[in-house]
Design a protein around this nucleic acid. Sequence first.
RNA 1: UCCCCUGUAGCUCAGCCGGUAGAGCGGGUGGCUGUUAACCACUAGGUCGGCAGUUCGAGUCUGUCCGGGGGAGCCA
Length: 462
Amino acid sequence: MKKQSIADILQLKGEKQELTAYGWVRTSRDSKAFGFVEMNDGSVMSNLQVFVDKEVSAFKDIMPKLTTGTSLRVRGVLVESPGGKQNVELKASEIEILGSAPAEDYPLQKKRHSLEFLREIAHLRPRTNTFGAVTRVRNALSFAVHRFFQEQGFLYINTPIITGSDCEGAGEMFQVTTLPLDNVPKSDGKVDYSQDFFGKQTSLTVSGQLNGEIFACALGNIYTFGPTFRAEHSNTSRHLAEFWMIEPEMAFCDINGNMDTAEAFLKYIINYTLKHCAEDMDFFNKWVDKGRVDMLEKIVNSTFTRTSYTEAISILEKAPRDFEYPVKWGIDLQSEHEKYLTEEVFNGPVILSDYPRDIKAFYMKQNDDHKTVRAMDVLVPRIGEIIGGSERENDLHKLKARIKELGLREEDYWWYLELRKYGSVPHSGFGLGFERMVQFVTGMQNIRDVIPFPRAYQSADF
RNA sequence: UCCCCUGUAGCUCAGCCGGUAGAGCGGGUGGCUGUUAACCACUAGGUCGGCAGUUCGAGUCUGUCCGGGGGAGCCA
């Protein structure tokens, strides 16, 4: 017989069927002649209430041992529950303790803990309601990402984690080396990377985009979904040194198609999660951020506002309030500006496009005005920028000129340039930080609480 | 990297003008015949983050180091 999860069991009506449940004690209450144990196995937010009365053999001995955290196998009959808070309960006939959890020092109590405290016990925090819900929502979002792209005919490709190109330019990189750090081989005073594992200097990837373009320019529509590493000394609730990023890349697609995909994509994965994680989402709505579900539903049913960077600047200049960073055309938008636009002006997601070329990456397609590039950012309330993307420069000469202008070395980009030399096509793509998406959906304030094992500056425990 | 806040019992926190510590929860013990943030009674827990200084006397004031949080920058 297949082992039934608590999710399965709670679906059953109380038809007096005999079954066996497995899980960990969340809380127990007892009196002289009976006790209640609530157990959870992570399959759903809800606990299964187990009723233990004195008929159960060794009731007196076992009841005090059923402390929070104890793992159990309970055999019994599933019956309708007389109590008001659950439909069914398991009337135990046999309880086996699989692993005890001494109450004197088990860190998780049947009370709310601060997220900061839970971060210190990351090996136990998955056993809490909050992290169970985060984990299930993260899983649903992850599956929805694949499902959206698969339904749209995108191919999932794996771009390298170790990269030999130092031309990604999206942030500080972690170096990968097997050279002995206490005695680095040198030649002419410089590190001799020819003796390193790959025979050259290598790092962990900061983006799969450039590699993704290779496959888009052969197979049409592709996406990546993999780990990304940035060695920035960022210390915020929105940054990690190791995070997961989704990067679709589409051939024969301009910036408008790019925006269409980004908008449809966000709506799809939000909608999927609302539908498949209703109980978890209720939990976030109630305990983490009231109104979050309404806001998400509104987004699913809305049309994202689209406007240009130039227009956004003009709105900000007219704003009836002062910003810490003064607004003028040409500046990069600050968090405060993005939040003002999305939270106060448009009250929902907004897609800005056509940014000044000087504040954007070299590979973005240059507009005819010679001032702007076809970049687009999707801004959402609370988070700010959640998606950044662009139509890529597909004109070989313009791209070369831009590389030169920025003082980059053409030879570093030889293969990237050849995509434009041979059969170049208009193409576009964007990047979505997966953890920021999980934050946005759950309302969790700190990014370190939406990834199982956060890696950040000066922090890599567990 | 910069700015601000913070560190007191296992957890969450209070502690006023400087006079060597308190609550709730959790734990332990006992009680309770349908509980569900269970309830009632009793009880045990503390080099007040570390180091130095001011002072007759420091949880409280000063310096410094370490940890945590928030914001900024960088970005996803």
